[in-house]
């Protein structure tokens, strides 16, 4: 069973047991505009909660994608190298950035659920 969480930095994290998939939200991609480049971490990379884990660039600007939780990357989404626009067209499915193994599931406690994130975005 998959549980979806969101950060105030506009990442989503879909958690299934101790593994999770991370991407940026539809709101984030709409704010960034046309994505022309994405760089994802390689398998084996250790990422830390709140620290830069990936890079996404629109026509206009470069942005960092932060790790919502600490863990070890299992897989980066290689499809983004060939077609970074997947982040625009399918931000919360095929446009995912990386999968990781959670180091400390309690880090999820401070994150928002879908309704909480929607309220957060509506308030921006």
């Amino acid at each position: 069973m998959t549980t979806l969480y969101f950060t105030q930095d506009h990442e989503w994290i879909a958690v299934d047991g101790t593994t999770a998939t991370v991407g940026i939200t539809d709101y984030a991609q709409s704010q960034l505009g046309d994505i022309v480049f994405a760089e994802v971490p390689a398998a084996g990379t250790r990422v830390e909660k709140g620290k830069e884990a990936a890079v996404v660039e629109s026509v206009k600007a470069a942005s960092d994608v932060y790790a919502p939780v600490t863990g070890e990357v299992i897989e980066g989404n290689g499809a983004l190298g060939d077609d970074p626009s997947l982040v625009n067209t399918a931000p919360e499915s095929d446009g995912w950035f990386f999968k990781l193994t959670l180091a400390d599931p309690s880090e999820l406690d401070g994150l928002m659920d879908e309704a909480g994130y929607k309220a957060f975005v509506d308030g921006l």
């Binding site: 506009h10 990442e11 206009k60 600007a61 470069a62 942005s63 960092d64």
Partner: peptide, 8 residues
């Protein structure tokens, strides 16, 4: 996610 080079 934040802009690292906002250019306004």
């Amino acid at each position: 996610m934040t802009d690292t080079n906002p250019e306004a």
